[in-house]
Simulated scan of single mutants.
Amino acid sequence: MAVLASRSWTGFVVKNSYVASQEFARRKRAGRRRRSGWSASLQSQWRDPLPPEGPEWQDAKPVA
């Protein structure tokens, strides 16, 4: 087992293994999405039903 480990170790060392693992996982997911042709976008059509109140909003005009 030690022989196999010494042959397969690349010598690559990172300062923060947690951050490196998160980056690796993010890139892996991005590659899967790219290969599958999947994409996503988020758009919001939500509007606040209540008008703003207070003196600072006295001269405000509604957005159409």
Rank of each mutant, 00 (worst) to 15 (best):
M1D: 10
M1R: 13
A2M: 11
V3F: 15
V3M: 12
L4M: 15
L4Y: 13
S6F: 15
R7C: 13
S8L: 15
W9A: 15
W9H: 13
W9D: 13
T10A: 12
T10Q: 13
G11H: 05
G11S: 07
F12E: 09
F12C: 04
V13T: 12
V13D: 09
K15E: 13
N16I: 02
N16L: 07
N16Y: 00
S17L: 09
S17N: 03
Y18A: 11
Y18V: 10
V19D: 08
A20S: 13
A20Y: 10
A20P: 01
S21T: 11
Q22L: 14
E23V: 14
F24I: 11
F24L: 14
A25R: 13
A25K: 12
A25Y: 11
A25H: 09
R26D: 13
R26L: 14
R27C: 05
A30P: 00
A30D: 08
A30V: 02
G31F: 10
G31Q: 13
G31T: 09
R32N: 06
R32L: 15
R33D: 15
R33F: 14
R34W: 06
R34F: 12
R35W: 03
G37R: 04
G37D: 05
W38E: 09
W38L: 04
S39I: 00
A40L: 08
S41L: 03
S41Q: 06
L42R: 03
L42G: 02
L42V: 05
L42F: 11
Q43E: 05
S44R: 03
S44N: 01
Q45C: 00
Q45P: 04
Q45T: 01
Q45D: 00
W46V: 00
W46Y: 12
R47C: 02
R47N: 01
R47M: 03
R47Y: 01
D48L: 02
D48C: 04
D48V: 01
P49V: 07
P49G: 05
L50G: 01
L50A: 06
L50S: 05
L50C: 01
L50N: 07
P51G: 05
P51W: 14
P51K: 15
P52R: 12
P52D: 06
E53M: 09
E53G: 03
E53N: 02
E53S: 09
G54Q: 02
G54A: 03
P55C: 01
P55N: 04
P55H: 05
E56V: 09
E56S: 09
E56L: 13
W57C: 05
W57P: 01
Q58F: 08
Q58Y: 06
Q58C: 01
D59C: 00
D59K: 01
D59I: 00
A60L: 08
A60W: 14
A60F: 12
A60R: 09
K61Y: 00
P62F: 14
V63W: 07
V63S: 08
V63F: 09
V63D: 04
V63T: 06
V63E: 07
